[in-house]
């Protein structure tokens, strides 16, 4: 444990923040500009992981383990979410022969 903490702390906190911000932004932009459902899904995962990274970094810097516990929660949750999400995408593909989300505009008044 000591080891990991010190390893994490070897990099200044600012760099973590910067990195996660960049990853998060890449994720957001990916979600916004791409139309392929799988790519969007991956971008969402990217955003989640950016947050995970940040949580882990803050947790070790502040000496509080609960941040890292949250990371585990999020990873477990993300796995479940991926299962459901991919299933939806598969269903969408079966029904529309496409995974372009712009086709899915029926969800309106």
């Amino acid at each position: 444990m000591e080891n990991i903490t010190s390893t994490i702390q070897a990099v200044p906190l600012n760099h973590y923040i910067l990195l996660s911000a960049i990853i998060f932004t890449i994720g957001v932009i990916g979600v916004l500009v791409r139309r392929n459902a799988i790519i969007i899904f991956m971008s969402v995962e990217l955003m989640l992981n950016a947050v995970n990274l940040l949580l882990a970094a803050f947790s070790s810097y502040s000496g509080d383990a609960s941040g890292q516990v949250f990371v585990f929660f999020i990873m477990a949750l993300a796995a479940a979410e991926v299962a459901v999400g991919l299933a939806i995408i598969v269903m969408v593909y079966r029904n529309t022969s496409s995974i372009d989300i712009n086709i899915l505009n029926r969800l309106k008044w």
């Binding site: 916004l32 139309r35 989300i101 712009n102 899915l104 505009n105 029926r106 969800l107 309106k108 008044w109």
Partner: peptide, 8 residues
């Protein structure tokens, strides 16, 4: 009408 149905 704002509810376009377009997820993007």
């Amino acid at each position: 009408l704002l509810q376009t149905g377009n997820v993007g």
